[in-house]
Amino acid sequence: KRYRAVYDYSAADEDEVSFQDGDTIVNVQQIDDGWMYGTVERTGDTGMLPANYVEAI
């Protein structure tokens, strides 16, 4: 699945990823209600991200 960031996010922990509004997130997997795991296409960084900061595309 592919998602697009709708807000900027700065990683708060080493297992999270930072991204900017408009970034595409690929290979996304749902972890639980609030978190997903995926790769930021622009940077190649992979990690956890907050589900409410992205939307499906």
Rank of each mutant, 00 (worst) to 15 (best):
residue 45 D to V: 10
residue 25 I to F: 11
residue 29 Q to R: 12
residue 30 Q to L: 13
residue 5 A to E: 00
residue 1 K to W: 09
residue 1 K to D: 09
residue 2 R to D: 06
residue 30 Q to H: 13
residue 36 M to Q: 03
residue 8 D to I: 06
residue 5 A to R: 00
residue 6 V to Y: 06
residue 23 D to N: 02
residue 54 V to L: 11
residue 56 A to D: 11
residue 19 F to Y: 00
residue 36 M to A: 06
residue 26 V to W: 08
residue 4 R to Y: 07
residue 12 A to R: 15
residue 40 V to L: 04
residue 39 T to R: 07
residue 56 A to T: 09
residue 44 G to V: 02
residue 53 Y to H: 09
residue 41 E to Q: 10
residue 57 I to K: 06
residue 41 E to R: 05
residue 22 G to Y: 04
residue 30 Q to S: 11
residue 57 I to M: 11
residue 45 D to F: 09
residue 34 G to L: 14
residue 54 V to I: 12
residue 22 G to I: 02
residue 2 R to H: 08
residue 32 D to R: 15
residue 47 G to I: 03
residue 14 E to W: 11
residue 20 Q to H: 11
residue 38 G to Q: 03
residue 45 D to C: 14
residue 9 Y to P: 00
residue 52 N to S: 13
residue 7 Y to K: 15
residue 56 A to V: 13
residue 9 Y to D: 00
residue 46 T to P: 03
residue 4 R to A: 05
residue 34 G to M: 15
residue 22 G to Q: 05
residue 17 V to D: 00
residue 3 Y to D: 00
residue 39 T to Y: 05
residue 40 V to T: 01
residue 23 D to C: 03
residue 41 E to D: 07
residue 4 R to E: 03
residue 24 T to D: 07
residue 21 D to M: 15
residue 7 Y to P: 00
residue 19 F to C: 03
residue 7 Y to M: 15
residue 16 E to F: 08
residue 23 D to M: 03
residue 48 M to W: 15
residue 22 G to R: 04
residue 34 G to W: 14
residue 37 Y to G: 02
residue 52 N to L: 11
residue 35 W to T: 05
residue 32 D to Q: 11
residue 36 M to I: 12
residue 14 E to K: 12
residue 48 M to F: 14
residue 11 A to W: 03
residue 50 P to N: 07
residue 24 T to W: 14
residue 19 F to G: 00
residue 55 E to G: 05
residue 57 I to T: 08
residue 43 T to S: 07
residue 56 A to E: 15
residue 37 Y to K: 09
residue 28 V to N: 03
residue 49 L to T: 01
residue 35 W to G: 03
residue 26 V to E: 05
residue 50 P to R: 11
residue 54 V to N: 01
residue 47 G to Y: 01
residue 24 T to P: 04
residue 50 P to H: 08
residue 37 Y to N: 05
residue 57 I to F: 10
residue 52 N to K: 13
residue 51 A to W: 06
residue 51 A to H: 06
residue 7 Y to T: 10
residue 9 Y to R: 06
residue 30 Q to E: 11
residue 38 G to H: 01
residue 50 P to D: 04
residue 5 A to K: 02
residue 41 E to N: 04
residue 26 V to R: 08
residue 7 Y to G: 11
residue 47 G to K: 01
residue 20 Q to K: 14
residue 1 K to Y: 09
residue 8 D to T: 13
residue 24 T to N: 08
residue 41 E to G: 04
residue 26 V to F: 10
residue 46 T to E: 08
residue 47 G to T: 01
residue 32 D to Y: 12
residue 18 S to N: 07
residue 9 Y to Q: 02
residue 47 G to Q: 02
residue 50 P to Q: 06
residue 25 I to D: 00
residue 12 A to M: 13
residue 45 D to L: 13
residue 55 E to L: 10
residue 27 N to T: 06
residue 17 V to Y: 00
residue 43 T to N: 05
residue 54 V to M: 06
residue 33 D to A: 12
residue 11 A to Y: 03
residue 54 V to S: 02
residue 47 G to W: 02
residue 36 M to L: 14
residue 16 E to K: 10
residue 6 V to W: 06
residue 52 N to M: 12
residue 23 D to A: 02
residue 39 T to A: 03
residue 25 I to Q: 00
residue 7 Y to D: 08
residue 22 G to C: 05
residue 55 E to H: 09
residue 35 W to P: 03
residue 17 V to T: 04
residue 40 V to N: 08
residue 47 G to S: 00
residue 40 V to W: 01
residue 13 D to Q: 13
residue 33 D to H: 11
residue 8 D to M: 09
residue 9 Y to N: 02
residue 31 I to P: 04
